[in-house]
Design a protein around this nucleic acid. Sequence first.
DNA 1: ACATTAATCTACCAAGTCGATAGACAAACA
DNA 2: TGTTTGTCTATCGACTTGGTAGATTAATGT
Lengths: 153, 153
Amino acid sequence: MISKKTKYALKALIYLSREYDKGPILISDLARDERIPKKFLELILLTLKNNGILQSKKGKGGGYYLGRHPRDITMGQAIRVVEGPLAPVPCVSESAYAKCDECDDEQTCGIRLVMKDVRDAMAKILDGTTLADVLERIDKAEQKQKGVLNFYI
Amino acid sequence: MISKKTKYALKALIYLSREYDKGPILISDLARDERIPKKFLELILLTLKNNGILQSKKGKGGGYYLGRHPRDITMGQAIRVVEGPLAPVPCVSESAYAKCDECDDEQTCGIRLVMKDVRDAMAKILDGTTLADVLERIDKAEQKQKGVLNFYI
DNA sequence: ACATTAATCTACCAAGTCGATAGACAAACA
DNA sequence: TGTTTGTCTATCGACTTGGTAGATTAATGT
């Protein structure tokens, strides 16, 4: 299960993607619209900025905005920053490899063999899905919902 | 990342799979051979038993053994028991669905759309891999390693 | 120069989880 | 009856999670 922190981060990024061409967005506005505790959101946005995903501007007219086009930011990148590596065990992580201390022979570890497959499957999806893709999928889901609604009217 | 508890559980299950036809195995032996803190392992084996994956026998000649054939126990089943649902968000869990409190409309939630794919990919692998499969993969990896070893001799 | 705005930094906190241990208890067996 | 072995309950320190408080710094408008 991903943490609330990660959910908040993803919500914020999707929000900022939707407002991509509208200049800096205030933390306060984001917090209010997405119902995220403001002070907590501050920390999240800051680490996203420190990891190159967001940029910010201080003072009047300031706020946060995406560091790159929504089509150039993936879910995988964002999740790794706030939640840590995707891999279920450190010994199959590409971004943050580490030896498992319980395990002596990595080559013949059954857990590792299976978890490698899991990691790869997750990475394929999350690194292959950009913020722009997510917006698109949301739009399609909303269209579909509207369609059903019309059907009932 | 999976917890140590889960790793210990999987190690124990793989161990018990290998000894499947040898009758009950002592907690002490398992703990010693797999280098798992004994008292901690007790709790793990107990919850695996309470969830129908293991069986046990008390007194002399007692110990723990698999409740079903290794070919009828999947990694997914075991992980759900000790670690909880596979799903990254509760609203896409099949085994333990729950509404996300941050989210009002499930149908159009972008996070959900992506995480559903992730859950399905994980479930496909973990529910499709039995303990017998794991043993087989370990054996193959060991054969391969021996081959390379022979090559160097 | 100065007030205002808004991000940034540091510290802190309560509650919960993780990994592990201790010891009493209960069933099986010889 | 005594020994063996699993079962249960309680407890522990360390760490993580989710969140708050307040001071500080940088940019902007007047």
